[in-house]
Design a protein around this nucleic acid. Structure first.
Lengths: 356, 356
DNA sequence: CTGTTAGCGCGTTCAT
DNA sequence: ATGAACGCGCTAACAG
């Protein structure tokens, strides 16, 4: 029985250390080394003595198992994919953070993919994640309301599932899967109602790209509420802010030029709301909320720091990510599940009673 | 020679499709199928006819190669790791976005790990990334100024390198590696100089956890500049804002209670600056910049939307991530490389001439 | 140009 | 309780 060289991580072979090398150093077979290190199922009983030798050898050699090899042998991995539109967008950053938090608690590694709102890229990443044998993927980006695309997405998702993968979607994607649904419609309705109760009757909406299902849902929610309240919303009073601060700024100038001039603006996300506030204050010289009221959507961290502090619709962003990851952990079920997450009105200082 | 069944992705076998199955369907050997699909090196010449058959079969079966198996055979992967403190923090989100952008351009998949500022987790993720055979990792989180930790980090990094991995650090981590260095010292000096030129002589600094090297560097830069300008900075005038908005808010109240009361505050990052502005305005009733001037750091997207718009030190965040990823792509070199990225003063409305 | 063969590193029967 | 042997899916050498 070969005594292992004294100790110290000194004599580390070049290149990755293999289980075989650990086994040799411990004077056991690779099977025993494997069992000692990962103790699979029932076969986890390895003699105290050998166990120690293996563990010591592994530590001394700074051994970490070859994940790809392990994945091949076990035909399962410990990685999950999360695909978003853009990490730099605080909305997605918050969702991703929520998802990563629970992933960490369960020892899962996450592959983050950003599509930059390119549908093709979304399909592409899905295929690559399938190739990686990611055990599940969270489709966190908004869905695209495109017939053809949805069909292709469904096909890819089916393939992913056929391979044993699990997909959970955030929001509507037109596919039958577990999904976490933020209250986009109800949230938008909340915004409208708040403004209506403050006496506003002339509305304007700064929207985003209509191709996104989240935009459609929010827009739809606002419209329905307006209609049921009996207030008119001329088509020209819905402008596209492109989901960016700058575009929203320009869109706001256009919006305020319409007749009748709106006294209340519902902005479909907080990033654009920052632009709207800027346009109103700096470009148009209008005071918020004295002359115009504005409500945003999402309640991103900076909403409270805007000028004035933004009244907005809060979505539990981190929860969305966390719950999605939870669904992954509880595995696919026979029936697709749906978790509805509420939106909440957060009143700050960008809304006030209508003076007209 | 078996004619492939008509077409259509119909007859897809259960479970992941293997290269072998594609080969059979195309009536060729798996080696040929492999070559047709991935054409390694010189051996990429596969007959036109066979090539087509293989490609068709693969498409019909919706085949994607098993990445773990491929990694095992090739002993190299196409994934890179990026470790940050917290994705929800706009600073890291921006860096990650920059890195992911170039990763995508080069077909690299990124594993994102968030340590939530726990050094142990950083070590842990590094080991797991090594296990994954990630070809490189970007240490984007700030380094920790802890002797013992740095030693352990160096050990882990060495192990990673011994396995053929490449690590590039953002900022000082106390390890000898390729690194992208944001101008933390110079940036802080810029902030001080700007304030000094406006006539300010009584400074306050809202700092962050001293254990972070980025904090130390910024603090050091500010101190040196102050000293060389001959202005005193009583130790009590440096308060810890904990890197969060809320803590910074509390810290600001404490800071303004010191004598002499500062007329200029240098805040070591924009997130805290939002809190400082809030405290000054809402808790203390002080007007910025009339009574107190404030300079932030980082120039996060929301800085221009604060009240008042924040004068701050801009760091090219996306570039930091992009350049780090570039270094990965150009592979490790004999000598560790260093890329210095400049900071820039962005004057907005939170600073003004000192009236005293 | 194409097929055969031999691993890559690990988990897992199957014996012992 | 431990070891020998095989297979996971793919690429790389070696023949032809």
């Amino acid at each position: 029985m070969p005594t292992p060289t004294p100790d110290a991580p000194a004599a580390r072979p070049a290149g990755p250390v293999t289980l075989q090398q650990v086994a040799e150093r411990a004077g056991v077979s690779s099977a025993t080394a494997s069992r000692a290190l990962h103790g699979s199922n029932g076969t986890r009983i390895v003699g105290e003595e050998l166990r120690r030798r293996v563990l010591d050898a592994a530590r001394e050699l700074r051994y970490v198992s070859n994940a790809p090899a392990q994945a091949l042998a076990r035909s399962t991995t410990t990685v999950v994919g999360v695909v978003v539109h853009d990490v730099a967008d605080p909305y997605f950053a918050a969702i991703a953070a929520g998802a990563m938090g629970v992933a960490r608690e369960h020892g899962l590694l996450v592959m983050l993919a950003a599509t930059f709102r390119d549908p093709e890229l979304e399909l592409d990443y899905l295929a690559r994640l399938r190739a990686q044998r990611a055990r599940a993927v969270v489709l966190a980006g908004s869905g695209f309301a495109d017939r053809d695309f949805t069909r292709r997405l469904a096909t890819e998702v089916d393939a992913y599932r056929a391979d044993g993968g699990h997909v959970v979607a955030v929001g509507a994607h037109g596919i039958d899967s577990d999904t976490v649904r933020p209250a986009n419609r109800a949230g938008a309705a909340l915004a409208v109602r708040h403004l209506y109760e403050l006496g506003h009757r002339r509305f304007g909406i700064v929207s985003g790209p209509r191709a996104l299902t989240s935009v459609r849902d929010r827009l739809d929610g606002a419209r329905r509420q307006l209609r049921s309240l009996g207030v008119m919303l001329p088509p020209a009073h819905v402008v596209d802010g492109g989901f960016t601060r700058e575009e929203a700024r320009a869109a706001t100038r256009a919006l305020m030029a319409r007749a009748p001039e709106p006294t209340a603006i519902v902005v479909l996300n907080d990033v654009m709301a920052a632009g709207v506030l800027g346009a109103l204050r700096d470009d148009l010289g209008l005071r918020v909320p004295d002359q115009v009221s504005v409500v945003g959507f999402d309640d991103l961290p900076f909403a409270a720091d805007l000028n004035p502090p933004l009244t907005t619709i809060r979505l539990p962003l981190a929860d969305i990510g966390a719950r999605a990851m939870d669904m992954i952990l509880t595995g696919p079920t026979i029936e697709a599940r749906t978790i509805d997450l509420d939106a909440e009105l957060v009143i700050r200082a960008s809304t006030a009673t209508s003076r007209r």
